[in-house]
């Protein structure tokens, strides 16, 4: 049972949160080509390495936040930040 560091509630059991996936910058919908937009929708870095990702503290403070986690070891690093969608591989 992973302990996920919610910035407001502190480390919580992972079942209390919802995993939001790789943080991806949202392209400008006004100028993105279909390939770029669908890259945002579908393609992922999916590294076995440090990854910037989003979590939603579903059972607690109900805030979205962004953290960096090593997907191979499940360590977290850096104080978590309020939700932002800057790029994937950390």
């Amino acid at each position: 049972m992973l302990l996920v560091p919610c910035p407001y509630c502190g480390p919580r059991n992972s079942v209390d949160l919802r995993y939001g996936g790789e943080s991806q910058p949202r392209p400008d919908p006004a100028t993105a080509t279909p390939e770029q937009w669908r890259g945002y929708l579908y393609r992922r870095d999916n590294p076995a390495d440090w990854l910037r990702e989003n979590w939603y503290c579903r059972s607690g403070c109900r805030r979205w936040f962004t953290v960096e986690r090593n997907t191979a070891t499940n360590e977290f690093r850096h104080p978590p930040m309020p939700g932002d969608k800057r790029g994937g591989k950390a």
């Binding site: 919802r18 939001g20 949202r26 989003n54 939603y56 579903r58 109900r62 805030r63 979205w64 309020p82 939700g83 932002d84 969608k85």
Partner: peptide, 13 residues
């Protein structure tokens, strides 16, 4: 509800 919160918190804070 989660969809709404996601937009407000992460894209339009």
């Amino acid at each position: 509800w989660e969809w709404v919160e996601n937009w407000l918190q992460t894209e339009r804070p």
